[in-house]
């Protein structure tokens, strides 16, 4: 085995060990953060900020969907079209509106007695009041 080969393999081992050590150090440094300033800050403001953006430019939803859970940037500049909001280019996070079911389907109304103007009982014409459940 030549000197150069030995040196290169040694360099490779040192490189891999150094990377593992650096990653272990990084993991360790994040462990101590919990009790630090971040917790104090978040407790103080009641939880603020979620996305990879430092100011709520154009739309709040990518800064913090709790503050504005409705993505109104989809309404303009082109209604219903692609949003040109710059926060859409924030590349490592993206928040969109979570659909909330606001539909209540009422039970079918009881048929009421026919009035003298009705030829049919109410609620039976055109499936009125019937759900598709």
């Amino acid at each position: 085995m030549g000197k150069k080969i030995r040196f290169y393999l040694l360099f490779l081992i040192v490189l891999v060990c150094l990377t593992i050590l650096a990653m272990a150090w990084d993991q360790y440094s994040w462990k101590g953060i919990r009790s630090d300033q971040m917790v104090a800050f978040q407790k103080m403001v009641g939880g603020l900020g979620m996305g990879a953006i430092s100011s709520p430019i154009w739309n709040f939803i990518n800064f913090d969907p709790r503050i504005q859970s409705v993505d109104d940037s989809t309404l303009w500049p082109i209604p219903g079209g692609y949003s040109y909001s710059p926060d859409r280019t924030a590349t490592v996070s993206y928040f969109e509106e979570i659909p909330v079911n606001q539909l209540f389907i009422s039970p079918s109304p009881q048929p009421s007695p026919p009035s003298r103007y009705d030829s049919q009982p109410r609620g039976e014409e055109k499936n009125e009041g019937k759900s598709n459940r």
Binding site: G47, I67, S93
Partner: peptide, 26 residues
């Protein structure tokens, strides 16, 4: 890194956030 900070923001934040619903927006 941001995920870590973001999770902290969720965990240390309030349990419920209440706002008015004005025409479908907060």
């Amino acid at each position: 890194g941001i995920k870590f900070q973001s999770l902290l923001s969720v965990e240390e934040g309030a349990d419920i956030y209440v706002t008015s619903d004005y025409f479908g927006s907060n």
